[in-house]
C-alpha cells in the first residue's frame, strides 16, 4: 500500500525508463495519432511492431503489460460486438432486421480491437516507465506552470500517510464499538462519517504544519526556484523522436498510397 506514490511504476533501469518524460508524452501523442491515421493492416502492423519494440526495450515483464489489457477487455469486446452487428457494408454475410454481419464490419471490429489494445498498452507503458513526479515535472516544463509538480509531489507524499491514518482512526472507532461491516448501503455510508471527520481535521492540521515547515525552509513561490533534477534530452530521446516521426510519416504514406481495406 505504501507504494501508491509510484502508481504503476515498474522500477527497472531501461532505455525507455531513461527517456525524458516530455519525450515519452510526445511519443504517446504521436503514437495515438498514428493508430487513428492507420487505415490498413500494413500501417497498423507498423504501429504494433514499434510498440512491441518499446515493450521489449522497457524490460517490463509481459505479464504486467498484458494485465493492462485485462481492465479494458470487456469494453473492447463489447464495442467490437456492437460494430460487427451494426456496421453496414457491401459484402453481406448475414442479415436480420437492422442487424447485419458484413465483411467490412468484421474488418472494422478487428481493427477496433487492435487499435484499442495498442492504445491501452502504449499509455500504460508511459506509467510503467515514468514516476508520477517525473511525469508532472515533464508537464510542468512543457506548459511552464510552476506549482504543479510541487502539488503532485506533496499529494503523493501524503497518500500513504493519510492511508495509515485512516486505518488508525478506523481501528480506534472499532475499539469504541463502531460497526463498519453490517447493515445496508446507507448504514455503511453513515458509518464512514466518524472516520471522515477526524481524517479531514488531521489533514488540515498536517497541512498547517507542513506550511510552517515549508516557510522555515525558505519557500517563497515558484519565481526564483531552481530545480535539482533538471530534465535534459539525450541521444535516447533523439532515437525515440525519430521513431515516432518515422511512424507517423510512414502510416500517413500508407494511407495515401495503399488506402483502406
Amino acid at each position: 500500500m505504501k507504494d501508491v506514490a509510484f502508481g504503476q511504476y515498474y522500477p527497472v533501469n531501461s532505455f525507455v525508463h531513461r527517456c525524458d518524460p516530455r519525450l515519452k508524452l510526445f511519443f504517446l501523442v504521436a503514437f495515438i495519432a498514428a493508430i487513428f491515421v492507420a487505415n490498413n493492416f500494413w500501417a497498423l502492423g507498423a504501429c504494433a511492431a514499434v510498440l512491441i519494440a518499446v515493450v521489449a526495450l522497457s524490460r517490463v515483464p509481459l505479464g504486467k503489460v498484458l494485465r493492462a489489457i485485462r481492465g479494458v477487455l470487456i469494453l473492447v469486446i463489447f464495442s467490437a460486438v456492437i460494430s460487427v452487428f451494426f456496421y453496414s457494408g457491401e459484402t453481406v454475410y448475414w442479415k436480420y432486421g437492422i442487424l447485419c454481419v458484413t465483411r467490412e464490419g468484421i474488418f472494422f471490429s478487428v481493427f477496433l480491437i487492435i487499435r484499442l489494445f495498442l492504445l491501452v498498452i502504449c499509455s500504460s507503458m508511459l506509467t510503467y516507465t515514468t514516476t508520477p513526479v517525473a511525469l508532472t515535472d515533464g508537464i510542468e516544463s512543457i506548459f511552464h506552470v510552476h506549482v504543479l509538480a510541487l502539488i503532485m509531489s506533496i499529494a503523493l507524499r501524503f497518500i500513504p500517510i493519510l492511508m495509515d491514518e485512516t486505518e488508525r482512526i478506523k481501528n480506534a472507532q472499532k475499539a469504541r464499538g463502531a460497526d463498519f461491516e453490517s447493515g445496508n448501503i446507507f448504514k455503511r455510508i453513515k458509518a464512514i462519517v466518524p472516520i471522515l471527520i477526524p481524517l479531514i481535521l488531521s489533514a488540515f492540521r498536517r497541512a498547517d504544519e507542513l506550511g510552517d515547515a515549508m516557510d522555515a525552509r525558505c519557500y517563497m513561490g515558484g519565481k526564483k526556484r531552481t530545480k535539482y533534477k533538471k530534465l535534459t534530452f539525450s541521444w535516447r530521446d533523439l532515437v525515440a523522436f525519430l521513431t515516432a516521426a518515422a511512424l507517423v510519416t510512414g502510416v500517413a504514406l500508407l494511407r495515401v498510397y495503399v488506402g483502406g481495406m
Partner: peptide
C-alpha cells in the same frame, strides 16, 4: 514534501 530522500533534502536549496 517529496517522496524520495534526496528530492526532499534539495527542497530548501531549490527555494
Amino acid at each position: 514534501v517529496a517522496s524520495i530522500v534526496e528530492d526532499d533534502v534539495a527542497f530548501g536549496a531549490e527555494n
